[in-house]
Amino acid sequence: MNSYRLTHLKELESESIFVLREVAAQFERPVLLFSGGKDSIILSHLARKAFWPAKIPFPLLHIDTGHNFPETLAYRDRWVERIEAKLLVRYVQDSIDAGHAVEERGPNASRNVLQTVTLLAALEELKADAAIGGGRRDEEKARAKERFFSHRDEFGQWDPKNQRPELWNLFNGKKHIGEHFRIFPISNWTEMDVWQYLYREQVEMPSLYFTHQRDCIDRDGVLLAKSEFVALKPGEAVRSYQVRFRTIGDMTNTGAILSPASTMEEIIQEVAAVRTTERGNRADDKRSEAAMEDRKKEGYF
């Protein structure tokens, strides 16, 4: 390789760092949305790099649905300490208790949609003018059209037909009072890039991503982890499987995949060979063909 040529990972890293620095420069009160999944891990890792040796100049914000994997919370606290970041947590339960959100009923009940309520309330409370997220354009069709700087109106809504053109690397973060931006610094990364980079950087990852034995329920082809949040439907049974998680969300809607991958190298090889999209195991996206687009318009992550 030419010595004046960056590898794809270095070029993506450079682009993301550039975007993160733009956020710090253009906004007064940004927050970085942190879920404990690999995309928010890589995002906060890049933020650490962007401002080093100073600390990350904005807090991490976790919208806690109360349906997390316990491993996620343990990892979150360790990680935040390691990267010397400040963490804020807001709870979906509080929105429910205050009557701002209504719990879904039935065996498929999830707090996925309710997160939006808590998120928007948190952004308002914190007077956040930019919320940095780990969304990637390769994840889902509606996300393929997202900007790095995605403008949201005073209701947090996304208008895909009226987006600002994004030219070169000139990001226009100008806004009126009450509006905010969602920022997606890792827009151009694919699932493969993320794993390659995390491997290359030797970032310690949550144990959920690696193979383990777990009690699961097979629901319409999605393997849901057994937990107090998932009620059994008639005819369903709990069985033990050797699984890992490809994405980490709530216990109610994150499907496990059968996998023996126990190291980052094995995960990379698995991702290279895999034949379904990573969100293919997300029950939340399966609700309808336009599920993601609808949630995004309302202000979802």
């Binding site: 354009r137 390769d138 069709k141 509606a142 393929a144 059209k145 895909p160 037909k161 987006q163 827009s187 151009n188 694919t190 063909e289 336009a290 687009e293």
Partner: peptide, 19 residues
């Protein structure tokens, strides 16, 4: 074909990024 409006009208209406 990313967005619902496109699926309905059968046209592409904005820049979409593919990998």
């Amino acid at each position: 074909d990313g967005l619902r409006a496109e699926r309905e009208q059968g046209i592409t209406i904005d820049v979409a990024y593919r990998y």
